[in-house]
Design a protein around this nucleic acid. Structure first.
Lengths: 119, 119
DNA sequence: TGATTGGTGAAGCATTTGCTTAACTATCAA
DNA sequence: TTGATAGTTAAGCAAATGCTTCACCAATCA
């Protein structure tokens, strides 16, 4: 059983490579075979398979083999998980910034040195 | 000037570590000094500073030094950028899945083997 | 002043990543 | 059965990561 934090490690690690993001991008437009996935990328099939393993380990992509062809597709649920983590933090600290803004706005013009809102 | 793709590399790379996410988490609850940031983490101050550099290089965190104290705060705009990339892909392929669902639903029970919807 | 606090920077080191080439297996088609 | 196609796996290697320790600087405090 994978801890949520470990899976987030794997997901963001998977996203941290332009080649893998390109693969996800292609998969977001529909399923693809390994060689189709490799086609636009300037690397060997072998390298692509290794990237694919990383994407699968993170859960972002699943695949199944039929005959000699492996077809890959992306899993939106796992991507949603990565999105949620970011979204929660972002909202939390945007709310914080707003409150700070309100506070400063309610304060009449005052020397607020040492308390810079945003540089 | 940083290409968008390069910055995404840096952002996701920065997010791909539980320690750095913990730091962001703390920063989402408000600014903090380097040592405050280090306190709950089981590693040397030196290591924390190195993580901080990674977070700053990605743009997720900015900091300024006053006297001998460095105060760090997170930047929601950069996080929004990471969120947007994910969100766009996710929506794209959820739409795709929905359309596929509709198609299958409209199709009376039929053997559609060998007839992939879009290759 | 001299000691303490808060942070910085450079080695150094083990592990991981991202790629390559090359050998191999399994399926399909003739 | 022979050959092409699709993919897999292992070995090897350079570079990047994630830590540590140690030496150091600069602001404050007694």
């Amino acid at each position: 059983m994978l801890h949520q934090s470990d899976q987030l490690d794997l997901i963001y690690q998977a996203l941290a490579d332009a080649g893998r993001r390109a693969m996800l991008d292609q998969l977001s437009r529909g399923p693809a075979t390994v060689s189709k996935l490799a086609e636009p990328l300037d690397m060997t099939l072998s390298a692509v398979v290794q990237h694919l393993k990383i994407l699968e380990a993170s859960g972002l992509v699943r695949s199944e083999k039929l005959g000699r062809v492996r077809t890959c597709r992306a899993d939106p649920k796992v991507l949603a998980m990565a999105e949620r983590w970011i979204n929660q933090r972002r909202l939390m600290w945007e709310r914080k910034l707003d409150k700070l803004g309100d506070l400063l706005a309610s304060q009449p013009d005052d020397d607020d040195s040492g308390k810079d809102v945003k540089s």
